[in-house]
Design a protein around this nucleic acid. Sequence first.
DNA 1: GTCTATAGCGGGATAGAC
DNA 2: GTCTATCCCGCTATAGAC
Lengths: 208, 208
Amino acid sequence: MFNTNKEDLNETQIKIMEAAMAEFLEKGFSGARMQNIADNAGMNKALLHYYYRNKESLFKQVFRDVLIDMFSMLTDIIETEIDFESKLNKLVKSYMNYLIEHRQFPLFLLNEIYRNPEIVDQVLRESDVSETWDKFYNELCQSQKNGDVIELNPAHIIVTIVSLVVFPVAASNVITRFADISQSEYYEFLQERIDIIPEFLIKALLKK
Amino acid sequence: MFNTNKEDLNETQIKIMEAAMAEFLEKGFSGARMQNIADNAGMNKALLHYYYRNKESLFKQVFRDVLIDMFSMLTDIIETEIDFESKLNKLVKSYMNYLIEHRQFPLFLLNEIYRNPEIVDQVLRESDVSETWDKFYNELCQSQKNGDVIELNPAHIIVTIVSLVVFPVAASNVITRFADISQSEYYEFLQERIDIIPEFLIKALLKK
DNA sequence: GTCTATAGCGGGATAGAC
DNA sequence: GTCTATCCCGCTATAGAC
C-alpha cells in the first residue's frame, strides 16, 4: 500500500531516516538542520540530497512514517472483534503505553499539521485512517442503540477519549516544568493514568 | 509586578508587538521572520532591533504576554470564593470561551516550551502562577476530605480537567482535517463542549 | 554511492544618514 | 526615532572528483 517499505531501505537510508526523525521530532521542520542530520547519521550533507531530493521530501518521509506508525496500532485494535467496553479498555491501555514510548509523536504531529495542513491531505489520502475511524464510530453508535453507552454525539465521546489519552503526553514537558517534577516521576504518573482513564470513561460514558 | 505594562508602550511598540505576536503564533520562533513582522507592522527591520535588541528578546516578550494573559483569568476565577462544584463549572466555561477566542495560544505554548524549556523558568519566576495552582490544589484536597470529590491523587484530577479543556483547542487543526469539517462547524462543536465537559467531570469526579 | 568544495541566497543584525 | 544600505553568517542545494 505504501511505496516506502522499511525493508526496501539500504543501510545508509536507514541511518539517514533515524537521524532525520530524531532531528525533526526534536526541532520541528523549520528548526531542523540538514547539517545536524548528516552529522548524526555519520555522513555528509550531500548524501542526504542524493537519497532525498531536498529537506522537504526528507521531512515528508519522516512525517509519513510517524503518522502511519501511530495509526497502524490503532487500526489493529479497532479491527479486533470484542465488546465495546473491553475494546475501550484495550484501546486506552495500548495507546498510553505506545505514547509513553513515543512521547514526541503527539506534539510533533499537532505542530507540523498546524503549520502546514496540506501535508496531511497528501499522506492521509493514501492511508486507511478514515476507514478505521468510521468503524469505531459505527461501533460506538451501535453501543448507544444497545443502551450500553449514553446518548451523546459520538464525536464528543471520541474527542473526550483522545483528549484524556493524548494531552498528558503532548504536554509532558509543560507539566513537568509547572509541577516542578522530574521526567521519571512524570513517567510514574502516566503509568498510573493507564488505569485511571478507563475508570473515568466507564463512569461517565457507560450506563450501568 | 511585571516590568512590561501595556500602558507604557508607545504606538510603534504596540504595532510591533501585534505584528510579532501574529507572526510567532503562526510560525513559531524558528519559523518566524523579522522581515514579516516589520512588513506587517508597517515599518523597517532596523526599527525592530532599535526597540528589541534581537529576535529572541522580541519573542520572549510575546511569550511572556501570552503566558501571563492565559493565567491571569484563571487566577481571577480561582480566587473567587464559591463552592467547588460551582467553581469547576465556572472554570471550564470561562476557560473554554477564552480559548475559543485565542485558539493559537495552547499549541504555541506547548510547542515553544518543549523546544526551549528554560524560557518558562525565566517568566514563571516573576509570576504568581504557582500560588494559583496551590490554592486550587488545596481546595481540591479539602473537597476530598469533605467527601464531595472522589479519593484520588489530585494531580490526576487536575490533569484530567486540563486535558478535556485544552486538547480540543490545541488539536483543532488536526481534528478539522481528520474529520473533514470546516472551522465554523468545529466552532459549533467546541461551543457544545462547554456544557458537556462539566457534566463529564461531575459524573466522573463527584460523589453524588 | 560517497566525498569535498562551493555556489547562492535568505535572514538577523548593525552602521550611519536624516 | 526612523530610514536605507550593507554586512556576514548559516543554511540549503549542487557541481564535480573519486
